[in-house]
Amino acid sequence: MDPFVVLVLCLSCLLLLSIWRQSSGRGKLPPGPTPLPVIGNILQIDIKDVSKSLTNLSKIYGPVFTLYFGLERMVVLHGYEVVKEALIDLGEEFSGRGHFPLAERANRGFGIVFSNGKRWKEIRRFSLMTLRNFGMGKRSIEDRVQEEARCLVEELRKTKASPCDPTFILGCAPCNVICSIIFQKRFDYKDQQFLNLMEKLNENIRIVSTPWIQICNNFPTIIDYFPGTHNKLLKNLAFMESDILEKVKEHQESMDINNPRDFIDCFLIKMEKEKQNQQSEFTIENLVITAADLLGAGTETTSTTLRYALLLLLKHPEVTAKVQEEIERVIGRNRSPCMQDRGHMPYTDAVVHEVQRYIDLIPTSLPHAVTCDVKFRNYLIPKGTTILTSLTSVLHDNKEFPNPEMFDPRHFLDEGGNFKKSNYFMPFSAGKRICVGEGLARMELFLFLTFILQNFNLKSLIDPKDLDTTPVVNGFASVPPFYQLCFIPV
């Protein structure tokens, strides 16, 4: 058959498939802009700032609406009420993970971030239990974070109060905490193996944040037939998995079943207990991918939040002064901060919360999916439909947070200066898919920041009023603009 005829037939089939998918069930789905064949609503979305586009569309179609990214149908949730109703009140029905062709290629359905069903539930339950087990290797997770915080302070001392970009050092600290939990080992910041790991993690975040990856996920045929950065992403992930597998083999040879040292040991012990169960989800494949998931999810998000926190503290020296006064009063100079201190430091706690609220790190979270046909607000959402959640619409709700575009710790303080919780605080998402490392991340943010401010004054290279804190939105995360500062020993 003539190649031209084959091409026309293929394009015609794709067009018909697109029209059929977009028209099927439209009477039951939430409203939304009319999609174009094949490309859907992509032309109506700013790929570099999806969150802003969703906010604009919500003003037209309401808090629940339908979009098509290519052939992929998505239902968008915008605003606290619908997000709570879906992710919390109907948590089980909305607990699936959205379709990610690239991740599915890399992870093969294993791990904790992109798995679904029984596998996801069992691996998540085990990971939560293990991360909360403060007795691994007779050292609590808090001990590990405190140790890394001391190392971080010593690295900052080496800058000798000269101007520096904190990106690298602030990236090393949370990565080392995860390494300590998974591998029972922290690395020197100049260790070549550690630097290679950091390089792969950072490069992957840069790649994932590009519009090209959005295109690959919406048109998965590209993955096999086109060159691009997605190939580098898959190569980096394969490198990390190979490295983790080597460490798993080392653990198998040296493990003491009665004295687990780290996450890998705990997983291997669980595998041993379930070795007679042919349906067990505790396999080497799941261990390797879960460890890679924890490394990827637990490094860049925390380091970016820390980097943004220091920029905001530079911009608002009056806030920094209040935090340091609270540190001096509650902790002093002669001991290290600990998590028990947080309950006695409402202002510092409010500042950490406000940093996370203000920066809105992951504006749309990772997409969910419905696990069955769901009736939601008089609409029928078919099983498997991807759910896109606007966390921006919750964290920047102007009824809950007056002047949401302003950095103001009073958003989390009552009139008496006591810490005030808010149900709208969802930087880790909400419901059954809430970030498994939430507790660890909150511990790291509090301890790293208090250790830094206990030991250093922060000095800006320019007038604080002239510092730009506008986030650089890159399609996946909101990151701070480049800046330098000086760490002046107190």
Score class of each variant (00 low, 15 high):
333 R>E: 10
9 L>Q: 00
250 E>M: 12
480 P>I: 05
29 L>C: 08
255 M>G: 05
302 T>G: 06
276 Q>R: 14
165 D>N: 08
244 I>R: 01
263 F>G: 01
414 D>M: 06
109 G>E: 06
314 L>Q: 06
83 V>D: 02
75 V>Y: 01
143 D>P: 07
309 A>Y: 01
430 A>R: 05
154 E>S: 12
130 T>Q: 15
239 F>I: 15
363 P>N: 02
85 E>P: 06
325 E>M: 09
345 M>K: 00
4 F>V: 14
307 R>G: 06
397 D>P: 01
91 G>T: 07
253 E>P: 07
108 R>D: 05
305 T>G: 02
164 C>N: 08
111 G>N: 03
161 A>M: 13
270 K>R: 13
16 L>S: 09
391 L>V: 04
482 F>H: 15
34 T>K: 13
196 N>C: 14
105 R>Q: 07
379 Y>G: 01
205 I>S: 15
272 E>N: 10
287 L>V: 05
424 Y>M: 08
167 T>F: 06
134 F>A: 13
285 E>K: 08
373 D>R: 05
310 L>M: 11
166 P>D: 00
282 F>C: 03
287 L>I: 06
130 T>G: 08
376 F>Y: 08
257 I>H: 14
65 F>Q: 02
174 P>S: 14
208 V>T: 08
222 I>C: 10
290 T>M: 06
304 T>R: 15
136 M>Q: 15
161 A>W: 07
388 L>C: 08
67 L>C: 10
163 P>Y: 12
376 F>E: 00
307 R>K: 15
191 D>K: 05
131 L>V: 07
103 A>Q: 09
23 S>D: 11
399 K>V: 15
324 Q>F: 06
444 E>H: 04
37 P>A: 04
139 R>P: 11
74 M>T: 09
273 K>H: 11
392 T>C: 05
331 I>V: 13
455 N>A: 08
279 Q>V: 12
207 I>C: 07
27 G>A: 14
106 A>G: 09
424 Y>T: 08
481 P>S: 10
183 F>C: 08
103 A>H: 13
132 R>A: 15
57 L>H: 06
336 S>L: 12
267 F>T: 01
169 I>G: 03
358 Y>Q: 05
232 K>R: 14
